[in-house]
């Protein structure tokens, strides 16, 4: 399994790098910041065009385990002095994201890029900047790894 893991991630990385070198193919607003190994990658995400998040740049942290791609990677927004997570009804202030694609709806036919694009469109289609319900309670008790949280996916609109 882990042979699949390393080979597939290297393929994805290679593809991302080829895409980023070619402006016609690059997914606009998504950029690979760092991929030193096959355990943790960082992306920057911004929503181009008209949206509530105009001129805001967010950083996404993607962590893999050797079960990838059979298990989804752990994805969350980076929270630091420099970058803050977006204010969004599905994004907690600790950076955790409630999106079915990161949990039950993950499929090994998806890719890291597919996740980034999904999250970008999740931001783009947001109609009201607000924190998720129960944010404070969740953030106080949340595990370090968002994959340990059992989210309930209820909202198909955003």
């Amino acid at each position: 399994m882990s042979v699949v893991y390393s080979r597939r991630l290297k393929k994805e990385l290679q593809e991302i790098q080829i895409e980023q070198a070619d402006p016609t193919k690059r997914a606009a607003g998504i950029q690979l910041l760092q991929a030193d190994d096959l355990k943790i990658w960082f992306f920057s995400i911004e929503v181009l065009g008209e949206s509530l998040y105009k001129n805001e740049v967010f950083h996404l942290m993607v962590r893999f385990d050797p079960e990838y791609p059979f298990k989804s990677p752990a994805v969350q927004f980076v929270v630091s002095d420099k970058v803050k997570p977006p204010v969004h009804p599905h994004v907690y202030t600790n950076g955790h994201i409630c999106a079915s694609i990161l949990g039950d709806d993950w499929s090994p036919t998806l890719s890291v890029m597919a996740i980034c694009i999904t999250i970008q469109s999740m931001l783009a289609s947001c109609k009201k900047k607000e924190l998720p319900e129960g944010n404070d309670d969740y953030v106080r008790t949340a595990p370090d790894n968002p994959k340990k949280t059992r989210f309930v996916y209820h909202d198909d609109t955003v």
Binding site: P89, H90, Y92, C98, P132, E133, G134, N135, D137, Y138, V139, T141, A142, P143, K148, T149, R150, F151, V152, Y153, H154, D155
Partner: peptide, 29 residues
């Protein structure tokens, strides 16, 4: 919040209509 989190752990199907994503404190373990 307590009923929410217990429901989300024990029975996901039943809790689908809950408002807001439930921040259950960690996985079952």
């Amino acid at each position: 919040r307590a009923p929410d989190s217990s429901a989300s752990l024990s029975d996901r199907a039943a809790s689908c209509d809950l408002r807001g994503p439930v921040g259950a404190s960690g996985s079952e373990t």
